[in-house]
Amino acid sequence: MNDDIPFEDIGPIDYLVIEFPADRSPDGSALPLLLDLVDRGIVRVLDLAFVRKLADGSVVGVDISELGFEGDIEVSVFAEASSGLLDNADLDEAAAILEPGCSAAVLVYENRWAAPFAAALRHSGAQLVASGRIPVQGILASLDALETQS
């Protein structure tokens, strides 16, 4: 992490585990979109790691340069993303939910857009006591149910 940003000014930190199908490698099409979020100061990538769960259930790390992304994608920007927040135990835990043969990206990022808001709350003595995320599939199912009721 950047040492010149005081801890109390850091935005909320989230993680994602994105599973890629066993029958095809990630194509890298989302990386330019992630880079755009970084360039606009919306997020800061703290860690980005790739793992593969082998058929026997064992887990191996995969270097981003070994993924064989198609097109003109500059992966070196993310190759150095390692804050130390993500360790081998985290990668093993993430890989535990994968199907054998699948690979995954594990992304840890700071929500820079929310940093001033979060800092103001912390300075006033407030604290986050719950957080969550509604999966897109759940929202789409709810919208479909509402549409069929109409």
Rank of each mutant, 00 (worst) to 15 (best):
D4R: 13
P6W: 01
F7Y: 02
F7L: 14
E8L: 14
G11H: 08
Y15N: 10
Y15P: 08
Y15T: 09
L16A: 13
L16E: 15
V17H: 00
V17Q: 00
V17E: 09
I18P: 03
E19H: 11
E19G: 13
F20D: 15
P21Y: 03
A22L: 05
R24F: 05
P26G: 03
D27Y: 08
G28E: 09
G28V: 12
G28I: 09
S29C: 02
S29D: 10
A30G: 14
D36V: 06
D36Q: 05
L37D: 10
L37C: 10
V38H: 05
V38S: 07
D39K: 00
R40A: 06
V43P: 01
R44G: 00
R44E: 12
V45S: 11
V45P: 04
V45Q: 04
V45R: 07
D47Q: 05
V51M: 12
K53S: 11
L54H: 15
A55D: 11
S58W: 00
V59I: 15
V60W: 00
V60S: 15
V62M: 01
S65D: 09
L67F: 10
L67S: 10
F69N: 08
E70K: 15
E70I: 15
D72K: 08
I73F: 08
I73L: 05
E74T: 10
E74D: 15
V75F: 03
S76R: 13
V77I: 05
F78V: 03
F78M: 10
F78I: 02
F78A: 06
F78E: 03
A79F: 03
E80F: 03
A81E: 02
S82N: 13
S82D: 13
G84M: 06
L85I: 03
L85Q: 08
L86M: 13
D90R: 00
D90Y: 05
D92H: 14
A94Q: 04
A94Y: 03
A95V: 00
I97M: 11
P100Q: 04
P100M: 09
G101H: 01
G101I: 05
C102S: 10
S103D: 08
A104R: 03
A104C: 11
V106E: 09
L107G: 01
Y109H: 14
R112Q: 13
R112L: 13
W113M: 15
W113T: 15
S124E: 12
G125K: 14
L128K: 13
L128G: 04
A130C: 05
A130F: 07
A130Y: 02
S131M: 13
S131H: 13
S131I: 13
R133D: 00
I134M: 11
P135I: 01
V136N: 09
Q137L: 12
G138K: 02
G138L: 06
L140F: 04
A141G: 03
S142Y: 10
L146D: 13
Q149V: 09
